[in-house]
């Protein structure tokens, strides 16, 4: 399994990835889109956000999102507007 940009986040990432990969094959591809790994993702993401800040990638990402937001608006989910 691949590493995280923050070495201290790799454990959390791998726990999340394991959960996600199982969900993807066993649920998502079979039509069940209810998320299952959100708590693991929250912990992993919190760790990554710190690493991104340290490496000053957070500002680069913020700039990129201005130009090309996430989630992308191209899909039909632009009903918030």
């Amino acid at each position: 399994m691949s590493s995280s940009i923050g070495t201290e986040c790799t454990d959390l990432k791998q726990k999340y990835d394991t959960c996600f990969n199982k969900w993807y094959s066993e649920k998502f591809l079979k039509g069940d889109t209810t998320p299952e790994c959100e708590d693991l993702f929250k912990d992993y993401k919190a760790c990554v956000m710190v690493a991104l800040k340290e490496k000053q990638i957070d500002t680069l990402l913020a700039d990129a999102r201005k130009e090309s937001p996430f989630p992308p608006p191209s899909s039909s989910s632009n009903s918030e507007a």
Partner: peptide
């Protein structure tokens, strides 16, 4: 989703998920 690491692509050092969701109306991940 499990492409990395592989011995042919050692230039890929890390892969991180920043955000992820299923679009409720389309079911697209």
């Amino acid at each position: 989703w499990q492409k990395y690491p592989n011995e042919h692509c050692s230039h890929v050092y890390a892969v991180d998920v920043l955000d992820r969701r299923v679009e409720p109306d389309t079911g697209v991940l």
